[in-house]
């Protein structure tokens, strides 16, 4: 299963980006092989509006079945939910910690968005 992690950098050592829609990058982690693919999010990061929606579409199109991030707004959550992508919210400091918590079953699936749109 592919899991999209929001990241400040381009590998699992980098800090987890607490924002979903305007995350710096998405790390597409394959839970079976452990392989990590980097999806840049520069285009959505700079959108005037709708970054959450477009970012959600981007991770869905790239085959992610789950998202691990800090916070998720209502529009992004709606897209992910409609696409059947599970959302996990965590305060983990980096990609390694997020994956460890995920594997240990310590991340709880979010039932709703946890922040308003355009939060900072």
């Amino acid at each position: 299963m592919k899991v999209a992690l929001t990241s400040r950098g381009n590998n699992l050592d980098a800090a987890l980006d607490s924002r979903f829609g305007r995350a710096a990058n998405f790390l597409l982690w394959d839970s079976a092989s452990g392989a990590v693919e980097v999806l840049e999010n520069t285009q959505n990061l700079n959108l005037a509006q709708g970054a959450g929606i477009q970012s959600a579409m981007r991770v869905v199109e790239n085959g992610a079945k789950a998202v691990i991030t800090g916070h998720c707004g209502p529009k992004a959550f709606r897209v992910l939910q409609e696409a059947g992508v599970k959302v996990y919210l965590t305060q983990a400091k980096d990609g390694h910690e997020a994956i460890r918590l995920f594997k240990a079953g310590e991340l709880k699936e979010a039932a709703a968005a946890d922040v308003e749109g355009h939060w900072t």
Partner: peptide
Amino acid sequence: QALARLGKRVL
């Protein structure tokens, strides 16, 4: 960015 395409569906 008012539309999102999910496979053969549009939100």
